[in-house]
Design a protein around this nucleic acid. Structure first.
Lengths: 212, 212
DNA sequence: GTCTATAGCGCGATAGAC
DNA sequence: GTCTATCGCGCTATAGAC
């Protein structure tokens, strides 16, 4: 605001880097501790910065949390790209399951922060859920309905199909420790995610009449 | 300990009732606020008791949380009853999905407390997950394998089948606010749960080759 | 067995020197 | 833009009268 026209790129670069570092650390800590369980001290330590530095970039803990969430919501909207009327249903759904499962493997913290937010009644993202997300899902549900009308797919409630797909894929990020424990492993490996993806794809595709 | 042989049933009854009231209030508050977000003051208020009374029955917040969790774990183990070799696979699975979905509708708080615990890395129930729960699931997985070997079921990884079933049913308790928002409703009704149960059953049964 | 009043402390946030 | 030192709130837990 005050010195807005000043193009000091050095300082800008430092800011961008520090902000990114803080956001990454915050995502990890919020994921495993939740909002109230997380402490700014732990986030700062993980980011390798002194605590007041955090408050210099994000005035409050709540503001930092919002910033983390906003990143995650943007990610979320991307994943449905493969669901288009022109696509072959089997291909599109397989790719969607794959995308969601990859997201669970590569960005487990993001998934957990979002899950935590939902568990607590989504105080910070209710607007998003009933707004942008609802519109996107309603849109994609129409695609599913078009496929059904064209006889390409067994009848199914499109919305509930999405709920099941989200649950089945995100569970491997959110509840990884349960799955690992039941499988008798310390951590999930990429082999486990492959097997999970195959299982979900097989169940859903055959469940929708898409496999002989 | 000190006056152990005294059969004063009046006091015993008061204790049992208060303990039950506290546990119920605690389950609700832990479910929506998480462990760190929950305050003993709020639990006490919801139970209609003064705060120190809580500490009289449960010495620490952590001990109260453990007690709430123990109740939930007991519930969890019951649900798999229908999975037996003698049963008809389609019947057994439909009943299992039904039981889990009913549990999501009737005991959403229990499901949420458990989900929260898992999200945070299961510090309090890791032993249970790798112990009693793993043994039960391994056991039930053998039943599924027997059905597959007998040609009653399309081949599937039994463990991952369970993971998908848990996810697909519990999501309606844990993430109810997301589902309600996307459906454009304020709260989920029993009609939504019925539709959800039908969708999951249809997908899974057909997915396992159990429907014409 | 119940409850008021308070101890004790961890945490978010800031002041202010560098 | 960075960091030490500290304030003050809100929480768990308890002491002690009833």
């Amino acid at each position: 605001m005050s010195a807005a026209k000043n193009p000091k790129n050095g300082k800008e670069a430092i800011r961008r880097e520090n902000v990114a570092t803080i956001l990454q650390a915050a995502e990890a800590v919020f994921a495993t501790k939740g909002f109230s369980g997380a402490t700014t001290a732990e986030i700062a330590a993980r980011a390798g910065l002194p605590k007041p530095n955090l408050h210099y970039y994000f005035r409050t803990k709540a503001a930092l949390y919002r910033a983390v969430l906003d990143d995650i919501l943007a990610l979320w909207l991307d994943a449905t790209a493969s669901i288009m009327v022109e696509a072959e249903p089997a291909d599109a759904l397989r790719r969607y399951i794959d995308a969601k499962m990859t997201y669970s493997r590569k960005r487990p913290f993001a998934s957990k922060v979002f899950a935590n937010e939902l568990l607590h009644g989504a105080p910070a993202v209710k607007g998003f859920l009933g707004g942008a997300m609802k519109r996107l899902v309603d849109d994609k549900a129409k695609v599913i309905e078009a496929w059904i009308a064209a006889g390409k797919l067994a009848p199914v409630d499109p919305h509930h199909l999405f709920f099941v797909l989200w649950a089945a894929t995100q569970t491997y990020a959110d509840f990884d420790c349960q799955i690992a424990a039941v499988l008798g492993k310390k951590k999930l490996g990429s082999g486990d995610f492959d097997r999970a993806g195959e299982t979900v794809s097989a169940l859903v595709l055959r469940g929708l009449g898409l496999k002989p």
